[in-house]
Amino acid sequence: MSGSVEAVLGADEDVGREPATPEIERGASLWRDAWHRLGKNKLALISLFVFIAIALFCVVGPFLSPWDSQQQDLMIGAQGPSATHWFGTDTLGRDLMVRVMEGGRISLMVGLIATLVALLIGVLYGATAGYLGGKTDAVMMRLVDILYALPFTIFVILLMVAFGRSLWLMFVAIGFVEWLSMARIVRSGVMALRKQEFIEAAVSLGYSHRRIILKHLIPNVLGPVIVVATLTVPAVMLLEAFLSFLGLGVQPPNASWGVLINEGQQNMEIFPWLLIFPAFFFALTLFSLNFLGDGLRDALDPKSARD
């Protein structure tokens, strides 16, 4: 609904609001409502299906294809799309479709694992800051502010140079960069919840801090966390592709979409399909994840979606 109604009606007037479900039903129905709202958002639904389709294409595809991504055949080097090689072949005669699928596997894997790393750090950091509050919180969040404005990509590049270009290092390095917005969102969620009565009740019952954080706070900030996580996946994939593009990420014979795009861009004058196919899938994945994240935000946090 439109936020302007609220602005016109003022805080005390409930008229303009859509007939809401009674407050008591919150909890279980929060998720049902969210699902309902998401279902109405066509763009988000299409994005979800596109993403699932791409993921299936990448994960299952290589098993169904007659071609092996490492199999070189210089005789058929850099052919355009054809009936035998749907996406054409690269300069070494490898089937581009299988390479795109397997590159997608690596890109998606990096996206998911690095996001998990970011999730872990961000949630723990943000929940701690928000829960402890006061000076500790101020210092911790100021640190996040400072980190947020730093040239992190440079550090990831240096890390990759210093400690070798392994996939696992990349997960951790990227995860360490992308946890900041997660920490912020968790912290503000916890801050808001901290003042609510059931937390006070838990404190007065003498529960330990750890137990309160794990049992009460984290489940309640799950919604925003899911949203940020969905939006972190494309950010992470972007960073991975960026590194791979510069030759600092995934190393041959493995290839991520970033590597493929780099190879394609070097030859785009003569063999444009080498650029177009991986770039298309990469961009489509980022699109679908971003739209899905936006849709989830609208669904899980209707207040922020009022515009």
């Binding site: 795009i261 861009q265 785009m268 650029l275 770039a279 961009a283 699109f287």
Partner: peptide
């Protein structure tokens, strides 16, 4: 703008070069 955000520099760059240059 969503397209602008989803197309990173290393995709946008080669594509612009391909279209406007080549």
């Amino acid at each position: 703008s969503m397209a602008g955000i989803c197309l990173p520099t290393f995709v946008m760059g080669p594509l612009l070069a391909l279209v406007f240059g080549l």
